[in-house]
Simulated assay, not measured.
Amino acid sequence: MTEAPSSRYKVVERGRRLVVIDTRTGREATAAPPPDRTSASDKRGSAEGLDPVDRMLGRVAGAVINAAPRSVDDRSGRPILKTSPLYDLKGPRRVILDENTQRAFAGVVIVTLVIGFVLLSVAVEWPAILIVPALVLINGTRPIRRWITARIDALDQAAD
């Protein structure tokens, strides 16, 4: 069996503090890199200070890059509802909610949770009640998905 190569870093105690040492350079790995001779304003707008992938993608130094849209809220601080093709015929899409649509959506969530809780509570005592959701799934969910899509469209238009 072969031995694993030695680690590049080692941890030592100096003055009752743990310090990480880079064994290749002999310097502390946690030390700040040496200061760059060019100022940040000189690099702004150029591709000098970027790695090759960023240069290939055309990014410039100093630019603020949002790779993915924010999922919690939009730029104004309002929440975003992400839909799924499982229940939304037009999904996936992102619907920005304002205060009124947020209250309406919260009401829908509460009603859905109450119905689910009641259904499960009744199913414990009377398992035959589970036939109703099974029949809905067998007969197709397209009408239900169409109804949900119409409600999401109303939320989307009310938020605009």
Rank of each mutant, 00 (worst) to 15 (best):
T2I: 03
T2W: 01
E3Q: 07
A4K: 14
A4G: 07
A4D: 11
P5Q: 05
S6N: 10
S7D: 12
S7N: 10
Y9Q: 03
V12Q: 07
L18E: 09
L18C: 02
V19H: 07
I21F: 00
D22H: 04
T25G: 02
G26F: 01
E28C: 07
A29S: 09
A31C: 00
S41V: 01
S41R: 11
K43F: 01
G45M: 05
A47G: 12
E48K: 12
L50W: 06
P52E: 14
L57V: 12
G58V: 07
A63R: 11
A67I: 06
A68E: 15
R70S: 12
S71K: 08
R75L: 15
R75K: 10
G77D: 02
P79A: 08
K82A: 01
T83K: 04
L86H: 10
L89G: 04
L89H: 03
K90L: 11
G91M: 10
V95E: 03
L97D: 04
E99R: 13
N100W: 07
A104K: 12
F105D: 02
F105W: 14
G107R: 11
V108G: 09
I110K: 12
V111G: 00
V111W: 08
V114E: 04
I115W: 04
V118R: 03
V118H: 05
L119Q: 12
L120W: 05
S121I: 00
S121C: 05
V122P: 01
E125R: 05
E125K: 08
P127Y: 09
V132Q: 00
A134I: 03
L135V: 14
L135E: 06
L137F: 09
N139E: 08
R142D: 15
W147E: 12
I148E: 09
R151W: 08
I152Y: 11
D153W: 00
D153L: 02
A154D: 14
L155F: 13
D156P: 11
A158T: 03
